[in-house]
Write a protein that binds this DNA or RNA. Structure first.
Lengths: 203, 203
DNA sequence: AATAACTCGTATCCTCTTGTACGACTTACA
DNA sequence: TGTAAGTCGTACAAGAGGATACGAGTTATT
């Protein structure tokens, strides 16, 4: 009873239904944090009652969707080599997972409104924390800026990713080019600011 | 009949009520895009019916709130010297209006869901457009990067401002220090990337 | 094949929010 | 000071969404 077989008996098709529902929930909630249970059911090609058969309340469903997204995020994160130059590591990280992180961020804001305060931090620990560690390492290696709070840097990156996802949804940003653009933007945010050209150099 | 006295007769206290309601709407909607008419009324220390006395529907109220926020934004913008070095101009702009711009952005997303498609662009023209012009000028002056689409840069700045406002709301960012942090972050996003330290320089 | 598990439609209840109607009270303003 | 304008509470209709109950049909598993 470590993590699998939460319940002793469950039929295979039920398992499949649950998977479809959670997946649909991720899709719907990422697009619209206010997605209805009925919307999600329809997206999963499943009756609304089936959803309630597996998730007692809507918040419970939202939490399940978020948990799965975070799990997927952590798995992807685990597959990325975070060693070597912190900047390159960050680029690798973004290249392989930025859209996923962005999606999780949208889900996160969806969950923020229906889950109790502490529950979020509880679930979210580890995902963003590992990004923070990478940034901190980059700082102590002297390749990332130290003039701004780490908390801010982490969140600023989050917001940029979220924004990029939104821009794509609105058709204002090419999905194919997004990865490069996001990476360039994030690198600029994290890089040690150039003391010469920043605000000085009037005339 | 240029812009004032839209209607010939209105009592002074009604004018005051309207001002209070619109102001409350800005506050509430900036914090929660789904704020109820009742919430707004309570925040304005006014009966819900009074609100409906001045605004037929909730969307109408949202539009009024947005319009006023944009008006305030444009006024502030007009008072800022956008000449000289584009970077310095941007810093001046952010120093005097970043929180206001951030608030407008939140309101904008609130309005996005209740106003018809075209109405938004119609109202919003001018506010963000002037920022875009400044960025473009900075680009042609060679002090802002040109390797990323202008649309993206404008929106990335928007998202960062929005994020900063959110961080303050959540108590994760000191309001006093925010201005400097925001400015530094935006400057980094817009600055011409350093070709040396960006991704190269492995070992 | 038998059975327990699962699916899923319908009907129902509850709550919240928007918007309207009415009417009494208060206040600005001429 | 009289009157129109404005305030605002209560009540009400309508619609949406969450959640429960019930029950008949379907399917996986033994």
């Amino acid at each position: 009873m470590s993590s699998a077989d939460t319940r002793p008996r469950r039929r295979a098709d039920a398992e499949r239904s649950i998977a479809r529902i959670v997946s649909a929930a991720r899709d719907c909630l990422s697009r619209d944090p206010d997605a209805t249970v009925d919307d999600i059911a329809k997206a999963a090609s499943v009756g609304r009652m089936t959803v309630y058969g597996h998730f007692r309340t809507r918040p419970e469903l939202v939490e399940a969707a978020l948990a799965e997204a975070l799990r997927a995020g952590e798995q992807t994160l685990a597959g990325v080599d975070l060693g070597g130059d912190a900047r390159q590591a960050m680029s690798r990280l973004l290249a392989s997972s930025w859209s996923l992180v962005a999606e999780s961020a949208a889900l996160l804001s969806a969950a923020q409104r229906v889950l109790p305060e502490g529950r979020l931090r509880e679930l979210h620990t580890g995902a963003a924390d590992r990004v923070e560690l990478l940034i901190v390492r980059g700082q102590s290696d002297g390749v990332f800026r130290t003039d701004l709070p780490v908390t801010w840097l982490v969140n600023a990156v989050q917001y940029v990713l979220h924004g990029a996802a939104e821009e794509i949804r609105l058709g204002r940003l090419d999905a194919a080019a997004a990865s490069g653009i996001v990476t360039a933007t994030v690198q600029s945010i994290l890089a040690v600011p150039d003391p010469v050209g920043q605000v000085r150099s009037g005339t």
